[in-house]
Amino acid sequence: MKRTGPVVFGFLIGMLMLIQYFTQVPWIDDRYNNVLDWKQVVFGITLILGVVSLFLHHWKKIERKTGGWGYSVVTIAGLLFMIAAALIFGREEGPYPWMFDHVQAPMQSTMFALLAFYVASASYRAFRVRSFHAALLLTAGVIVMLGRVPLGEMMGFHIGEHYFSLGTISTLILDYPNLAAKRGVMIGVGLGMTATAIKIILGIERTYLGKGA
C-alpha cells in the first residue's frame, strides 16, 4: 500500500494518458481532460504549501533576527499585501493589478534586460579561447552576430564572381551546422525523455517518490 500502491496508481494514470493519444473514444478523451484539470488543482493546492514554506523561511529569519532580516519583512509584506489586495479589491482592479503592472512587471523585465550585459561578459569569456572547440564556438558566434546586422552585408569576400557576405555565411551556418546541432540534441533528448517517461510509468524510476519507494 505504501510502496506498490503509488507505483500501480501512477502506472494506470500514465497508461490512460498514453492510450488517449492513440484513440478518439469520447469517454477516454473526457477522462484525459479530467486528469489535466486534476493536475491543475493539485498544483494549486501545492502552491499553498510552497507559499507557506516561503513565509516560514522568512518568518524564522525575522524571529531569529538573522542578518538581513529586514529584507524578509519586505518579502512577507509584499506577499501578504498581494493576497489582501486581491481579497479586498479583487483581481481585476485596484492595488493588485497595479502592483503587477508597476512593480512586478518592470522588475521582471529589468532582470530579463540584464541579459544584454551578461551576454557581453559571457562573450568576453568566450573570446579567451581555451581550446579548438571554444574557438569554433566563438568564430561561429561572431559570424552570426555580425551577419545579422547591416554591417555584415558589407563585409565579405569574393570567390570568382560570387560575393559571400557575412550575412550569407551566417545564414549558411544557421541553416546547416546549427540546424544539425539542434536536431541532434533534440533527437537525443527525445530518446532520453521517452526512456525516462517509460521508466517512470513502469515504476523502475521512482526516486521522485522518496523514502522507501
Binding site: V51, L54, H57, Q104, M107, Q108, M111, F112
Partner: peptide, 9 residues
C-alpha cells in the same frame, strides 16, 4: 525552500 513562480523573480 520555495521562492516564487515568477521566472525572473
Amino acid at each position: 525552500y520555495y521562492t516564487t513562480q515568477s521566472q525572473f523573480g
